[in-house]
Every structure is written in structure tokens, then in C-alpha cells.
Simulated assay, not measured.
Amino acid sequence: MRIEGVSKLFGSFQAVRDVSLTVSKGEVFALLGGSGCGKTTLLRMLAGFEEPSAGRIFLDGRDMAGVPPWSRPVHMMFQSYALFPHMTVAKNIAYGLKHESIGKDERAARVREMLDLVQLAPFADRKPHQISGGQRQRVALARALARQPKLLLLDEPLAALDKKLREHTQFELMSIQARTGVTFIVVTHDQEEAMTLADRIAVMDKGQVRQIGSPTEIYEFPNSRFVAGFIGSITAFEARATGRDGGNLLLDVPALGGRVAARDVPAVIEGQPLTLALRPEKLRISKDRPAGANAFEGLVKDLAYFGKDSLYRIVLPSGVLVAAHAVNARRGDEGARVADWDDRVWLSFDPAAAIVLAE
């Protein structure tokens, strides 16, 4: 799938702005963004439900302009699943093959294959209301895959599931995609879902693609303050480049009380205003001052226990609140915590953990 300069206008409102990207065969590609960012509009243009106001969409080198949805080798799986309540699981899957030019025996074989693929053969004669939400999701997926599309579009595919079931189903989806080799484009607002499912992610905002990359690239090397804040959590500080030392970029960060050493960014020049972003899990908390330049004292204002880890909100002398995570590696009561409310602690981080942003 190749998208070239695609835009979409609804009256005077521009829902999608000059989007260009390429999705490779067999890839799982995620369109990630908040409500109203244009990701679903872009998906609907790929499916043929909307026509671009400008730009072109190609599938296997063929221009999709003017090609209706039913003539595209594309299937869209809707957020609601859109299952027929009066049909059995097997008949719901078979419905997608109704207009295919295949014989009755081949159709039945295809349905059995899909039931086995999504592990629902024992539920073939049940109605949608007689199976769980996760199973209904797999029925919708089987129906979509039964037509053997080149491209499967999934619009918030796991939004209707609870947290634990959603986590389990993410891995099922990955397994099914790997076995079929069908190209998936997934629309989601859930950062964890995109990071788990996708080979690459396009982060969208106000109709534009802000960054495209692997989950690691997007998380560890965001190209803007927006992307850094949208993917995961950060504490952002105003900073200014002051020089270089030993392969590190030196920054003046008033909120942290002075000089900070960060991974060097070659394009940055001395005196340039920047943003320093720190992720909570990259910060270390200790009662004693650690060695190294990047160490700052503060007071524990808030503490939240999540079981596997704890979140500390620490106020610095400048008044800035910094969030930090600490893994609860030991089993025990409150005595196992790194610190408690109103404790004075030190925060520190490695230069490589600091994210330096020019925009």
C-alpha cells in the first residue's frame, strides 16, 4: 500500500493533511492518535468508503481512484464487529464468501479453515450472544480473512474488550497475522496496543503524520515534544545547549538547578533553546546522593502502589513535579518501598536516558 500526498476535506475542515506513507506486504502497521486526528478518515479512504480530496492511493501498484469498496482486495473489520445476531458463528464467517465465485464445497472448506485458525470450531453452531466478547472479535476477524484479502483494515479492533482480555487478544492477533501473512493496518488510540501489535507506527495529530517508525524508535527517539508526550509519559523541562563534554551534550536546565549531561545530538548548536524530556522509568530514586552529574534532590509528595511497581511524584526545589517509577522487586509491606511520603530523596539518570528535542 502506497499513499501519496493524500488529503481529505469535509467542507472547510481538513481531516487529513498531505499524508504520504508506504506499508509493506505482510507488515502490521498502526495509525495511532487521539480522537479527531484523522486516522479513521484515512482508513476509510483506504477501504474506498471515502474519496481523497487530493493525492493518490496505490495497492500493488494499482491506483485505487474510482475503485469501489467491493472491488478492492481489501477488507475492513469494524470496531463493533457488525456480526449478524440471527446467524451462527459459521454462517457469519461464510457470509463474507457469499459473493465469491467459489463452489459450495470450497466455501465450506474455507469456513472450516477459518474456524480452526481462530480456534472457534467447537463454537461453530452458536449465535454471537452465546459467546464471549473476545470470541466475537475472532469471528469478525475470521469473516474478514475468509475472503483472503491482500490488506485487512482494523478500526479499534480491541476497544470493546476489558483490559486483561485485550492483552490476551493482542497476542492472538499477532499469531494469526503471522500465520496468514496478510498485511494489517490497525487504527487505535491505545499506545500500548500499537506498540504490542505493530511493526511500525505512524503517530497522527490534526490530520498530519508526525512521525513514522518502529515502536522502539517512536518511544526512545521521538522527533517532537508532541510524540514524546503522546507515547508514554514524560516530564518536560525548558533547556538550553551550553556545550559538549566527553561525547555528551551539556544543557542548562533551570528547573533542575543547573547543568545536565545528555546524549549528544549533532545537529544542536550552542545556545539553542531545547526541551529536555525524562521518562519516569528512566529515573533512579535513592536516599543517598549518587555519583555523577545528573543528580537532583527533591521531596516525595505523592506515592501510588501498583503492585509490580510504584509511582513517585517528587517536587524539586524549583517547584516542578517529576514522576518516577520504581520496580517493586521484593515482596513485602510498605518497608520494601524505596521511599515514603515526605521523604527527601535523590533522582538521577544516565545521559543516554535523556531525550533532547528541538521542537
Rank of each mutant, 00 (worst) to 15 (best):
S12D: 14
S12Q: 14
F13C: 05
F29R: 08
L31K: 03
G38W: 05
G38E: 01
K39V: 05
T40H: 04
P52E: 08
G61R: 06
G66R: 13
S71Y: 04
V74E: 03
Q79D: 01
F84A: 05
F84Q: 06
H86I: 04
H86C: 01
V89H: 10
A90F: 02
E113N: 12
M114N: 06
A121F: 03
K127W: 04
Q130E: 15
R136P: 00
V139R: 00
L153F: 05
L154M: 14
D155T: 01
L158R: 01
A160F: 03
D162L: 06
K164F: 00
R179Q: 14
G181E: 12
V186D: 00
T188L: 02
E192V: 10
K206A: 13
K206F: 04
V209I: 14
R210W: 01
S214E: 10
T216H: 12
E217Q: 15
N223V: 15
F226C: 06
R240D: 00
G243N: 09
G243V: 12
D245A: 07
G247V: 11
N248P: 01
L250K: 12
V253M: 06
D264F: 04
V265S: 10
V265T: 14
G271T: 10
T275E: 05
L276I: 13
L278V: 08
E281I: 00
I285P: 04
I285M: 01
A291C: 04
E297K: 15
D302F: 07
F306L: 15
P317N: 03
P317F: 01
L321S: 15
A323T: 09
A324M: 09
H325N: 11
A329H: 09
R331K: 13
D333E: 11
G335T: 15
D340L: 13
W346Q: 07
F349T: 09
D350H: 13
E359P: 09
